[in-house]
Amino acid sequence: MKSMDNKKKKPEFGLLIDYEYCTGCHTCEVACAQEYTHKTGIRGIKVFEVEQTLPNGKEYLTYFPFPTEACLLCPHLTKEGFEPACVKHCMAACMKYGRIEDLAKEVGRKPRMVLWVPR
């Protein structure tokens, strides 16, 4: 275990996503594609849709943005004090970039949150 910890740098930063407010607009995906001029099919973040009828009979639509293996958290932007491209452009302003320990404190603030730590 110890040797692995030494080899891999411990992650410091992550994304806190308040998926209650993700509307599925896919802005984060195209913001990412533009930032890295990704080809079609490559995205550092992808929005998924879950559509279901809940046990109480209510139909419900949930979207959640998922940082993929291609997500680098835009270090070229963050080191200059800018937000990652997806966070900056999110139309619902439902994503936050920060230090994992700071975001972890916020994750319990309200329900329907997820803290992602990409690769």
Binding site: T27, E29, H89, C90
Partner: peptide, 12 residues
């Protein structure tokens, strides 16, 4: 307020 949608971000 800084936000921008997918269609505008595809301007290039």
């Amino acid at each position: 307020q800084g936000r921008l949608c997918a269609r505008c971000l595809a301007m290039t």
